Simulated assay, not measured.
Amino acid sequence: MEIKLKIQNLKCHGCANTIVTQLSKLNDIAEVMVDNNSDEVSFIYSSELSFNLAKKKLSDLGYPIVGESNSLPKKAKSFVSCVVGRITK
Rank of each mutant, 00 (worst) to 15 (best):
M1Y: 06
E2A: 11
E2W: 12
I3L: 09
I3Q: 07
I3M: 08
K4W: 00
L5R: 01
L5N: 01
K6E: 12
K6L: 01
K6Q: 13
I7R: 00
Q8A: 10
K11G: 07
K11N: 11
C12R: 03
H13F: 14
H13M: 11
H13A: 11
G14K: 05
G14I: 03
C15Y: 08
A16K: 03
N17P: 00
N17S: 14
N17G: 10
I19W: 06
T21W: 03
T21V: 09
T21Q: 11
Q22K: 15
Q22R: 13
L23R: 01
L23V: 05
S24K: 04
S24N: 13
K25R: 15
K25E: 04
N27M: 03
N27K: 15
I29G: 02
A30C: 05
E31S: 13
V32W: 03
V32P: 01
V32M: 01
V32F: 03
M33E: 14
M33G: 09
M33V: 10
V34T: 01
V34W: 04
V34N: 01
D35T: 10
D35K: 04
N36Q: 08
N36D: 12
N37W: 07
N37L: 13
N37T: 14
S38P: 05
D39H: 15
E40H: 10
E40N: 09
E40T: 15
V41C: 00
V41D: 01
V41R: 00
V41T: 01
S42V: 06
S42H: 08
S42C: 08
I44R: 09
I44E: 12
Y45T: 02
S46E: 15
E48V: 11
S50K: 03
N52L: 14
L53W: 04
L53P: 00
L53F: 10
L53K: 14
K55H: 08
K55G: 02
K55F: 09
K55T: 10
K56I: 07
K56F: 10
K56T: 14
K57G: 07
L58W: 06
S59N: 11
S59P: 06
S59H: 13
D60K: 15
L61D: 03
L61S: 04
Y63T: 02
Y63K: 02
I65D: 01
I65E: 07
I65K: 02
V66H: 05
V66C: 07
V66G: 02
E68A: 11
E68R: 10
E68S: 12
S69M: 11
N70D: 15
S71A: 13
S71V: 05
P73K: 07
P73Y: 13
P73G: 05
P73D: 05
K74I: 12
K75Y: 07
K75S: 08
A76K: 13
A76F: 12
K77Q: 11
K77V: 01
S78L: 09
F79G: 08
F79K: 15
V80H: 11
S81L: 03
S81R: 02
S81M: 03
C82P: 12
C82E: 03
C82Y: 01
C82V: 06
C82R: 06
V83F: 14
V83L: 14
V83C: 09
V84G: 00
V84Q: 12
G85T: 06
G85K: 09
R86N: 09
R86H: 11
I87W: 11
T88A: 10
K89S: 12
K89C: 07
K89I: 13
